Computed example of a mutant assay.
Amino acid sequence: MIELGFASDFGGQSTKLSEIREGLRRISEAGFTHVHWCHEWDGDYLYAPSEMLQIKSWFDTFGLKAKSLHASKGSRIASAMRKDMEARKDFASFHEYSRQAGVELIRNRMELAEVLGAREIVIHLYVPYLTFREQPGSEEQFYRQVFKSFDELKPEAMERGIRICLETMLEIPAREQYRQFDRIFARYPKEYIGICWDTGHTHVILNEDMTTFAKRYRDRIFSVHLNDNLGGPRIDLDGKEELVWCCDMHWIPWEGTIDWEAVTDVLAESPYELPIVLELNCHEKNQKEFLRRSYEAGIRLANEMERKRI
């Protein structure tokens, strides 16, 4: 039997218990074996221990396992390109108490991951590159805070056996992400921090060159969000590439323009362990049909990846 993962919020981020439970039932009914828990991926919501047990009971009821969990970086922000100085529970905050609260928020997600049996958590790290340009010294201050938070989280993460995976982002030009990952990976081992490769995000920022990005960090790919879109046009302003539009639709693989042959080439050469995870958004009335097509695409990807590893 081929194992396959699916994002829990494919039908939206409902807060109604019945609708969350129904979403998991439909995932299981479609044939998926694993879940990427993606509810409350954004914001400063804290799970109570009783809620963690409730989610685990739903997983058990429907015979589902947890592949990964999407943690939150804190309060929603107006722009990923500039530092939000007022964000709550932000592990990269320049305000020390907010930074500490952000660390506690990630610890909360690590606890949930352990209850569900997930071995990796995914985090967005927004690199405020426009603030770096406008405020000299802000880049060093930003990374001081980020490193302080990761240093504090490391002992617990290693003890729990949970890896932090930084997601590839669509709001940040590739060159800025290269600087970010190079700097962080030089400091922390792959046993602690890796990458969550979101194929849709890298397709937006790099189009046909998206696998160049993934190949550079291939040995750090431990989590994936596989989804399709149409890419994203960019413009060069005074020698500085800027994102001007994006179309991150989270479509089913092969329903957009991503080269999935190239994607599976990279995954087959990476340390990524099955099951793969599809992170898709359903905007169709017929969810059953959407899940059927999603499952078929996922099986095709998993088979291709395994074939290339033989």
Rank of each mutant, 00 (worst) to 15 (best):
E279W: 03
W254N: 14
L280M: 00
D228R: 06
H225R: 13
V266I: 04
K240D: 05
S294D: 11
L243V: 00
F290E: 09
P275E: 02
Y295F: 03
N227C: 12
W245N: 13
I235A: 14
F290D: 08
L274T: 00
A268Y: 06
W245E: 13
R216D: 04
W245S: 13
L291G: 15
W254D: 12
R220I: 09
L291W: 12
P275L: 11
C282D: 04
E273M: 12
R216T: 07
E279C: 01
C247R: 11
P253C: 15
D236V: 15
R218I: 10
E255F: 08
D248K: 00
G231C: 08
L274A: 03
V266A: 08
E284K: 01
L237W: 13
E296G: 02
D236I: 09
Y295M: 06
W251V: 08
A262S: 13
Q287I: 09
V277C: 07
T264E: 00
H283V: 01
N281S: 13
I252Y: 05
F222N: 03
T257I: 01
L230K: 01
L243N: 08
E273N: 04
L278A: 00
S223N: 09
P275Y: 06
R220S: 13
R220G: 12
K240L: 06
P271G: 15
V244N: 03
H283S: 03
P233T: 06
S223E: 04
I235D: 14
E241Q: 11
L237S: 10
T257F: 00
G231P: 13
W245A: 10
I276S: 02
